[in-house]
């Protein structure tokens, strides 16, 4: 449902293109937004209704292959919603509160967004990069 708050216990995945990955390490730029962006696009893993992480990742790899030209160096960053929000709230000077909301699209039902990432202060992106839970290849 559009606008549904994703629970802190749930997980989201971010597609990280190779320009934001070096030697397999996902860098802060993977979590930056343009001034015109309303949110950072992610996918809600639990919404995929798959039994395990491996099958969730396979679904995402298929999704990305349909929508993007996925290069070998591209990665998927898995984030646990609660720790991301807590990290940013506790460690930014203005105690910034991020929102993680479901934003389904016709061809991408698990599509979601992380809202309130500032485009002009890279500290939030740096903090998110520090709490990446898992890294996977974006290409099957």
């Amino acid at each position: 449902m559009k606008g549904q708050v994703i629970p802190d216990s749930d997980h989201v995945a971010r597609y990280c293109n190779p320009a934001t990955v070096e030697n397999g390490e996902i860098l802060a730029t993977a979590f930056m937004v343009r001034s015109s962006d309303e949110h950072l696009s992610v996918n809600w893993l639990e919404e995929l209704n798959r039994p395990d992480r491996a099958s969730q990742i396979r679904d995402l790899q298929e999704l990305y292959a349909r929508k993007l030209r996925v290069r070998a160096a591209a990665r998927i960053a898995i984030l646990n919603v609660g720790p991301v929000r807590a990290k940013v709230e506790q460690e930014t000077p203005n105690r910034r509160l991020l929102r993680v909301l479901h934003d389904p699209e016709a061809d991408d039902p698990s599509h979601s967004g992380i809202y309130d990432i500032p485009y002009d202060d890279e500290i939030v992106a740096e903090l998110i990069a520090l709490v990446v839970l898992e890294k996977h290849s974006a290409r099957a």
Partner: peptide, 14 residues
Amino acid sequence: PALSLTPDRNIYAS
């Protein structure tokens, strides 16, 4: 530094 590009294709060095 570790190098990457921002969404606006600017250099980000870390």
